[in-house]
Simulated scan of single mutants.
Amino acid sequence: MTSFAFPIIDLGPWFDGGPSGRQAVANRVRIACESIGFFAIVGHRVPDGAIDAMRSTSRDFFDLPTPRKMEVARPRPEQNRAYHAEGTETLARLAGNDTPPDYKEVFAIGPLDVPGDDPWYHAAPGAYPNYAPNLWPSDLPTFEPAWRTYWSAMEGLQDTISRIFALSLGLPEDWFGGALARHCSMLRALNYPAQRQLPRPGQLRAGEHTDLGMMTILKNEAADGGLEVRDLDGRWHEAPPVEDGFIVNIGDLLMRWSNDRFRSTLHRVANPRSGGGARRLSIAYFVAPAYDALIECLPGCATPDRPAKYPSVTVAAYRNARFARTAAPIVTAA
């Protein structure tokens, strides 16, 4: 691994520094997004208790026997919901590659309490599977409350970072608010177990890929075999754990929206270098606008020398089919 500058940005001035502080944070974020597409944040105001409870109850779930976890298995390959067992996801397919399945297991949820007061919108053509029902383990009483609390904290952080992105692109702070009002974001806990046997050739904890959404907010931890980011020269670099912060990266949708001003960067989760390595838990919140939001070149992101590169596309049209490719077929008993 070579070293490179991974920006760590304090959001304190965004909250407390007035217009000049907000602009200073936006400028730092813009530089990070235009260069490597990754940065870390501290001073985010997410309560420590919400993070601790999310980690604890997620570990409790992954410690359950496999048959218990399979009681809340993902219902269909295109639904990013509930339990994804080891061997059922291959993220490298997002980048057009085919490798052995990722060495991990996952639990995932999407938007809470839908359809709410607008059932037509959430059931309209094109909405599926973005608002598919969540499944919850029945015998872990702390699980659902912890996940709901963490989800709410991420919605708040999603709003803050989207405002920073807007200001960094020279737009009004609330520019992305309409697209995110009915967002179809996803929250996933990813358990990378100690590897009981040598990985197969080409198999990683998570294969190299870019994220499909607007951005990802990641809570990782210090353990051998973690997140690595690829630079423009094709070299891989370890991302810092930033124990008191989060790592944020740009997704494909924001890269398209910004006409490639912001970079969606290849990344992966490496295998441990020391034998089977230690278990690792990561918590990732994948921000996605409403399924029918139109992604087209933002004002100011196209110039005569750099015309709009991408055709307009809805969030659902871009994400749904590509994500379904990552899942192994679900086989049910006859």
Score class of each variant (00 low, 15 high):
F6A: 12
P7G: 09
I8L: 13
D10A: 08
F15S: 03
G18Q: 01
R22E: 00
H44P: 15
H44K: 05
A73Q: 11
A73E: 05
P77R: 02
Q79K: 09
A82V: 07
H84C: 15
T88R: 11
T99Y: 06
P100N: 02
V106C: 13
V106I: 15
I109A: 02
L112R: 00
L112P: 01
G126A: 03
A127E: 01
Y131T: 08
L135I: 02
W136A: 00
P137D: 00
Y150S: 11
W151Q: 03
D159S: 14
A166W: 04
A179Y: 00
R188T: 12
A194T: 15
Q197M: 14
P199K: 08
G202W: 00
G202D: 04
L204Y: 09
L212P: 08
I217Q: 02
E221Q: 14
D224R: 08
V229Q: 02
D233G: 15
G234L: 05
A239D: 10
V242F: 08
V242W: 11
N249Q: 06
L253F: 11
S258C: 07
V269R: 13
V269N: 13
A278Y: 00
R280V: 07
R280P: 09
I283C: 01
A284L: 10
Y285N: 05
F286W: 01
L294F: 06
I295Y: 14
T303S: 06
F323L: 12
I330D: 07
